[in-house]
């Protein structure tokens, strides 16, 4: 009886204390009102994509996606607050407006895009699922893994792809499923499984954490398509456009050679594409219609850099992961990264 009166009071007090914002017109207005972008990232920390460094600053390709949006909205890439999320929490966090955008190496799939009330805004990393095995097993192909024990994280597309791959190749396997990635890593490291599977990009970063990284090799097979990208809530077209075009701006900048270092010089470029990107010239304003300023893309490139720079810094040659561009090269260089023109 009183307990419930009390509970109501407690909940009421909690709402007040939560500093919550009531539902309003759109995410952009909310974000502008509170002064930062709340961004959901990988709570366990996935090196190269989203992980805090020793000083507690979040770094990574996904983190740069958040910073780009903050730069576009506020002109300042540091106006982001991060929420570390597990695989289980990530979509609920977005649905319940706990975060404004999700950039947590999440695979775009049809059911997620259509049934969970969220929309993927693009692909910031084309990935595919791969396997890592202990060298000592003498395995050189995933096709040799018949009968193997495989460590995998639960509730990921990975878990399902794994099953599909073995089934379609007529092989049996034994999945050892863990709630958290750290636990799956540790179990593989301790020899519980013959193979470890996750997105190929993740394999490289996880391999680095092993007791003896050189004891493991990543197998050549890629068994699935894993287009990883940021997601926003369904039904807020303006915000969706901002997140989508923040990524495109970085791609276009790379395509036309606009970098963090030369962006100021490029403002005087004669190339109309670059002028439109940087909002230079009379009446060239693509920002205002989506609630931003005309120099929105300039701010992104100035604050975060172009896609190529972000890639190299976080996962490419400039990082411990040393992942080749591969599918993530620009379309002009044989990859899949392609942005529609600003026009």
């Amino acid at each position: 009886m009183r307990s419930n009166t009390f509970k109501t009071l407690l909940l009421g007090a909690v709402f007040l204390g939560a500093g919550a914002v009531a539902a309003s017109a759109g995410t952009l207005d909310d974000v502008k009102a509170k002064g930062f972008v709340q961004c959901g990232v990988n709570g366990a920390g996935l090196a190269g994509f989203g992980a805090p460094d020793d000083a507690g600053n979040w770094k990574g390709l996904d983190v740069d996606a958040c910073r780009a949006v903050a730069a576009a909205v506020f002109g300042d890439p540091s106006k982001v607050k991060y929420t570390g999320l597990s695989a289980k929490e990530r979509f609920t966090a977005l649905q319940s407006k706990e975060i404004d955008m999700l950039a947590r190496n999440s695979t775009n799939t049809m059911s997620r895009d259509t049934q969970l009330g969220i929309t993927f805004t693009g692909v910031n990393y084309y990935d595919g699922q791969g396997f890592m095995v202990k060298k000592a097993l003498g395995v050189s192909s995933a096709k040799d893994l018949n009968g193997a024990s495989v460590c995998v994280q639960s509730g990921t597309t990975t878990e399902l792809n794994l099953a599909d791959y073995f089934k379609s190749n007529g092989m049996t396997f034994n999945a050892v499923v863990f709630e958290k990635q750290e636990e799956a890593d540790a179990a593989y490291d301790a020899g519980r499984c013959d193979a470890y599977t996750t997105d190929a990009s993740g394999l490289y970063s996880i391999r680095l954490k092993m007791t003896n990284p050189d004891d493991s090799i990543v197998l050549p097979e890629i068994i699935s398509k894993e287009p990883l990208g940021p997601a926003v809530r369904q039904g807020d077209d303006q915000w969706e456009s901002i997140v989508r075009w923040s990524h495109y701006a970085m791609l276009i900048a790379e395509e036309f050679g606009v970098t963090q270092a030369n962006v100021d010089e490029m403002k005087s470029s004669e190339n109309p594409e670059v002028q439109r990107l940087l909002g230079v010239g009379e009446g060239v304003d693509f920002g205002t219609p989506i609630g931003l300023t005309k120099d929105w893309a300039y701010n992104i490139i100035k604050g975060v850099g172009n896609y190529g720079e972000s890639f190299e810094r976080n996962v490419g040659e400039g990082s411990p992961l040393k992942i080749a561009r591969g599918l993530n090269a620009l379309w002009t260089k044989g990859g899949l990264q392609y942005a529609p023109p600003i026009r």
């Binding site: 695989a87 289980k88 979509f91 609920t92 049934q115 969970l116 639960s154 509730g155 990921t156 878990e159 399902l160 499923v177 709630e179």
Partner: peptide, 14 residues
């Protein structure tokens, strides 16, 4: 682990 783990995460029916 199975139901509130894998099933929940895959179907999203929290």
């Amino acid at each position: 682990a199975v139901f509130a783990g894998s099933t929940l995460n895959i179907t999203g029916h929290a």
